[in-house]
Amino acid sequence: MTTRTDVPRWTAIPAAIAVALLGLPLVGLVLRVEWADFLSLVTTESSRAALALSLRTAAASTVLCVLLGVPLALLLARSSGRWAAAVRAVVLVPLVLPPVVGGIALLATFGRRGWLGEHLEALGIEIAFSTLAVVLAQTFVSLPFLVITLEGALRAADPGFADVAATLGASPGRVLRRVTLPLVAPGLVAGVVLSFARALGEFGATVTFAGSLQGVTRALPTEIYLQREVDPDAATALAFLLVAVAVVVIAVVHRPGRSPW
Rank of each mutant, 00 (worst) to 15 (best):
W115D: 05
V101Y: 02
A190Q: 05
V141R: 10
P8S: 01
V134S: 09
S47Y: 04
V19Y: 10
G117A: 08
S80C: 01
V100F: 06
L143A: 14
L51P: 03
L75I: 13
A199E: 07
H254D: 15
G102T: 14
R228C: 02
L107P: 06
G201D: 01
A77C: 08
S40V: 12
E126S: 11
I13F: 15
A239P: 04
L64V: 13
L21C: 08
V248Q: 03
T3E: 11
E121A: 14
A50I: 03
I224W: 09
L143I: 15
P144C: 14
P99F: 11
S47Q: 03
R228T: 14
C65V: 07
Q214C: 00
Q227H: 03
A52V: 09
V42R: 02
S40N: 14
P221E: 01
T57K: 10
D231L: 09
S259W: 02
C65F: 08
L92N: 13
W83V: 14
S79G: 04
G152N: 12
F140Y: 15
L51I: 14
S40I: 08
E202C: 07
A185K: 15
D233I: 03
L76R: 14
F161L: 14
A20V: 11
A239T: 15
D6C: 10
A49I: 01
A153M: 09
V63S: 03
L75K: 11
G114H: 04
A20K: 01
A52P: 01
G102Q: 04
G103A: 06
V33M: 11
E126I: 00
S61E: 07
G257H: 13
V193N: 04
D231F: 11
P172Q: 12
P221N: 05
L213S: 12
T236K: 02
G111T: 07
V66H: 06
R88N: 12
S40P: 06
L183G: 02
L22G: 02
S142Q: 06
L226W: 05
D6R: 11
A86H: 02
G124E: 06
V179I: 15
A128M: 07
L136Y: 07
V207Y: 06
T57I: 08
G111N: 05
V30S: 05
E34Y: 01
Q138N: 04
V175H: 09
E126P: 00
R177D: 01
A58L: 12
P25E: 05
G117F: 05
I13G: 03
V248A: 14
L120S: 09
L21K: 00
L21R: 00
F38M: 07
R82K: 09
F129N: 05
L154G: 10
L55E: 05
P232L: 09
R9H: 04
V42H: 08
V175S: 07
A244I: 08
L95Y: 02
R177E: 03
A162L: 10
